[in-house]
Simulated assay, not measured.
Amino acid sequence: MSLRLDFTASERPEAQAACARLKAIYGSAAKPDVVVALGGDGFLLQTVHRCLRDQIPIFGMNRGSVGFLLNDYAEDNLMDRILKSESTLISPLSMRAIRRDGSVHEALAFNEVSLLRQTHQGAKLRIHIDGTVRMDELICDGALVATPAGSTAYNLSAHGPIIPLTAKALALTPISAFRPRRWRGAILPHSAQVRIEALEIDKRPISATADTTEIRDVTAVDIREAEDLKATLLFDAGNGYDERVLTEQFAS
């Protein structure tokens, strides 16, 4: 069995060079069965956004600086690797951000939705889960809600938990929390409806970002999993994402 492949690459020279070589070996289909993404994790997620409507599976290979979601790069036996690969479905978060002028902006995030302070003043946030206030006031640099796929990105840097892709959970993680100082965040069910409300917005303006879409001067952000939307990531057999999560957690 053969597959129709297409290749896409980040702007990094090594990714562009690899893309040219692979197209010369395997060709490039206008209507592919699989898209091979060459770059880092960030570029892979950009490719997921582009391919979401057409529901094309994505096999990533690392030609970037960070490659937690990517397979090792190799030019030989690529077709066989993809045919034997393990598939994992991921869903994005839906962000609905309300600005001070009353306008509403929506975007999707396969990594995380993050809220960040815009000035030297710390953010002051109120957190609602499923309509109930769970934290009346959080003073911090910001907070984020991460998907399992995004849990190894900004969330991990902010000391949030790594979540297996097959776990039906989201990570809610504070960024440099000042008060309550000891709060380290929460693991939420994937069905949770999260609202983060900005307090004292005249003094403490806040921006909200869904992957690469940034909205400034927000007053509230509603976040939920867009469970009806699915993207397919392909991983080498025996080296799927959940195996990498276990390896990362037991690394010395």
Rank of each mutant, 00 (worst) to 15 (best):
L156V: 00
V145R: 00
A186E: 11
R181M: 13
Y154N: 04
P161Y: 02
A149K: 06
P161V: 00
R184F: 04
P180M: 07
L144S: 05
A169F: 03
P180V: 01
S151E: 06
A186F: 01
A153P: 08
A143Q: 01
A171M: 09
I162P: 03
G160E: 02
G150H: 08
A167S: 15
R181I: 05
A167G: 10
I187N: 11
W183K: 03
S176K: 05
L165R: 06
A146Q: 00
A158N: 12
P174T: 01
P189H: 12
L144W: 06
T147C: 08
L165H: 10
L144M: 15
P174W: 04
F178A: 13
A149G: 02
A158V: 11
L172F: 15
N155S: 15
H190W: 06
T147E: 05
A186N: 02
T152D: 03
A169P: 09
I162N: 03
S176A: 15
N155D: 08
T173I: 04
F178E: 13
V145G: 01
R182W: 02
A143D: 02
K168R: 14
G160H: 06
A192T: 13
I187R: 14
A169H: 04
A146D: 00
P174C: 07
P161L: 00
L144Y: 05
P189C: 13
S191H: 14
